[in-house]
Write a protein that binds this DNA or RNA. Structure first.
Length: 646
RNA sequence: GCUGAAGUAGCUCAGUGGUAGAGCAGCGGUUUCGUAAACCGCAGGUCGUGGGUUCAACUCCCACCUUCAGCUCCA
């Protein structure tokens, strides 16, 4: 028997008989490891535990804590679900059933049958039943013709369509129990580790993600090696719902969405407006420090402006339709601020000495999002960008990108938010979606990557995520339910300067085109605040808190003193409210705790006679008595620091 | 836009064909109280909208609107 050499992650290696499986290797190391093993990584590729290894390889045993292990676990769970569905609903056609970030799904064509909550429960129960049978996941290689005839017999058009693209290749099947699937794997050895199962939801999904195709039913599920982990996961899901900005936005009176105004058109309530104005002030100051000039532009513009920019043909469907005047003139609600700013750049001849010109505006724009797309403050039809356009000479470009990225990072650091950075490139297979020629794109993409590398940014690349006029550096954040959203963005644009014939006179006396950087650190104030509500779970840092302190007299005998306190607070710029309701102190405290107000100032006989306030901190409790001046100084200090803690 | 689910008081929710309910919030009163819910009372609804079936519809049927989950899209 031929020997092969297996190298482990710690660098040690050992010889095995050729054809040894990952499971056998794990068993050779320890029983415990074999029990926990879910899959193996062979030369960087995730394999089944039962697959024979026939050549020298670097090998890692994958357990639940490894992504590859989870991947195999959930992939196998998807098959288990499919097996359950097939046994309960014979004749179901199967689309695809992959693992996802958390859990898995399977797309199903069930003809006329629409899945109900009871169906889901039945499928779940059947999965539990099947999992206890410890069926093996068996990998089988077949030639292409065999595979086609198998699915022809099964009358599954989806698998046949998938096979069309694998023509001529060796096809792998996986069997588990009575269920057989076209699948590249990898899978668990048996169904045994799948102990805790929960089917979460059913939703429609287009076959292969295209609107033109039939819509299938997609079941989302999640499984775990034990019920404890499942319970923890379900608990976290509930926690996330408690943080949902739509719920908190209503409870804390931050914003209002009403059909009376229209979908995706939020109204800012007084408390929300305080948050928003503080954010705007923060960024206005930071931008002024960095040499930005503020401008203001109207909400509508002549349609021709967007024909010049090229936005109109590219994004016609996602804009509100033009307003047509009796004389035939047409206006657009502005979907972006750039064309307006380009006009301001062009107000006079520019010299290289003027550059960079940095024009900033908190500009409100309108986009016609599809009706199913609106989502609280996070996806809206009218929103305000913290927009700016930097017009610079080419040799200034990288410095300007660097400083805009630094500004964006400062923003997220101020809020203690973790962001992922994506370099958004164009999709070379789909060039008609983009403006400008290939050379511009190549150059711009190289430039942002150079900056990202020089700044040692931790980034990933998103093909096809560029805007139509240039590549971007995007800052992505997750919401409470784990959906990722783009917030800040920095974009390089060589296209608009051409279209708008933007120029400056260089030191050589000749006309040159500037390069434009489009950038928005928050992205949209609406989305940013939506994410911020979830990030802080409604417990805003003091500088943003709509109400910073509530003054609570013990009884109405101390109302006079309380009035004095509140007047002094307001005078010192503390956002304070007076709770003069005829209620017991415990009631008032509970109420202001639920409103997540950072401080409560309790005043009674003690405080009145010593000219102090008793400070109670949100979620922490009584801090004891403090002079009024000391409290004001404390608030001023925390606000000045933009402290994240009280 | 597509698929599915849901819409009852300001909020959270109960109500399966026979006169619309509760808790909280609000308002009035009593109480004057020391760190997460005092007590009594009052008021509050075109049951999303419109049509239909029925002696009778919150309840059954149809259409539309809105919201939610997902898909598609996303400057």
């Amino acid at each position: 028997m031929a020997k092969i050499k297996i190298t482990f992650p710690d660098g040690n290696s050992k010889d095995y008989d050729s054809g040894v499986t990952g499971l056998q290797i794990a068993e050779g190391i320890s029983k415990g490891l074999a029990r926990e093993a879910l899959a193996v990584e062979v030369n960087g590729e995730v394999w089944d535990l039962n697959r024979k290894i026939t050549a020298d390889a670097a090998l890692k045993i994958l357990k639940w804590k490894d992504d590859g292990g989870k991947y195999a676990f959930w992939h196998s769970s998807a098959h288990l679900m499919a097996a359950a569905v097939e046994s309960l609903f014979p004749g179901t056609k199967f689309g695809i059933g992959p693992p996802i970030e958390v859990g898995f799904y399977y797309d199903l064509d069930m003809g006329d049958h629409t899945l109900t909550g009871e169906d889901l429960k039945k499928i779940e129960d059947r999965m539990v039943e099947l999992s206890t049978k410890n069926d093996q996941y068996v990998r089988e290689e077949r030639n292409w013709e065999d595979a086609v005839s198998y699915f022809k017999e099964k009358k599954d058009p989806y698998k046949l369509e998938l096979l069309e693209e694998l023509k001529g290749q060796v096809i792998t099947f996986y069997h588990s129990g009575a269920f057989t699937d076209l699948c590249y794997g990898p899978h668990l050895a048996t169904t045994a580790p799948i102990k805790a199962i929960k089917l979460l939801s059913v939703a429609g999904a287009y076959w292969r993600g295209s609107e033109k195709n039939k819509m299938l039913q997609r079941i989302y599920g999640v499984t775990f090696p034990n019920t404890k982990e499942l319970d923890e996961y379900l608990f976290r899901l509930e926690e996330a719902k408690r943080r949902d900005h739509r719920k908190l936005g209503q409870e804390l009176e931050i914003f209002l969405l009403t059909p009376a105004v229209g979908g995706g058109l939020p109204l800012w309530l007084p408390k929300g407006t305080i948050i928003r104005e503080n954010l705007v002030d923060f960024l206005r100051i930071e931008q002024k420090k960095r040499g930005y000039d503020f401008v203001m532009t109207p909400h509508i513009a002549n349609l021709d402006l967007y024909k010049t920019s090229g936005h109109y043909p590219y994004y016609k469907d996602s804009q509100f339709p033009p307003i047509t005047m009796p004389d035939g003139e047409q206006y657009m609600l502005k979907p972006m601020n750039c064309p307006h700013h380009h006009q301001i750049y062009s107000v006079k001849p520019r010299s290289y000495r003027d550059l960079p010109v940095r024009l900033a505006e908190f500009g409100t724009v309108y986009r016609y999002e599809q009706s199913g797309e609106m989502n609280g403050l996070i996806r809206v039809r009218g929103f305000t960008q913290d927009d700016a356009h930097i017009y610079c000479a080419h040799d200034q470009l990288k410095d300007e990108i660097t400083s805009t990225v630094e500004l964006t990072q400062l923003v997220f650091k101020t809020f203690g938010m973790e962001v992922k950075i994506r370099l958004s490139y164009r999709d070379d297979k789909n060039v008609e979606k983009y403006g400008g020629d290939a050379a511009f794109w190549e150059q711009a993409q190289r430039e942002i990557k150079e900056v990202a590398d020089e700044m040692k940014l931790d980034y990933f690349i998103g093909i096809g995520e560029a805007s139509f006029y240039g590549p971007k550096i995007d800052f992505m954040v997750k919401d409470a339910l784990g959906r990722t959203w783009q917030l800040g963005t920095v974009q390089v644009d060589y296209v608009m300067p051409e279209r708008f014939q933007l120029e400056y006179t260089a030191s050589d006396g000749k006309k040159h085109r500037p390069v434009i950087i489009h950038r928005a650190p928050f992205g949209s104030l609406e989305r940013f605040i939506g994410i911020l509500i979830e990030h802080f779970a409604g417990e805003f840092p003091l500088w943003l808190a709509p109400v910073q302190a509530a003054v609570l007299p013990i009884t109405d005998q101390y109302a006079e003193y309380a009035k004095e306190v509140i007047a002094q607070m307001k005078d010192a710029g503390v956002r304070a409210e007076f709770d003069d309701r005829n209620e017991k102190i415990g009631y008032k405290i509970r109420d202001w705790e639920l409103k997540k107000v950072p401080y409560m100032l309790v005043v009674g006989e003690k405080e009145k006679s010593s000219n102090t306030v008793s400070v109670r901190q949100h979620k922490k409790g009584d801090l004891g008595a403090m002079s009024r001046e000391a409290f004001i100084a404390k608030v001023a200090d925390l606000v000045h620091q933009k402290s994240l803690t009280l």
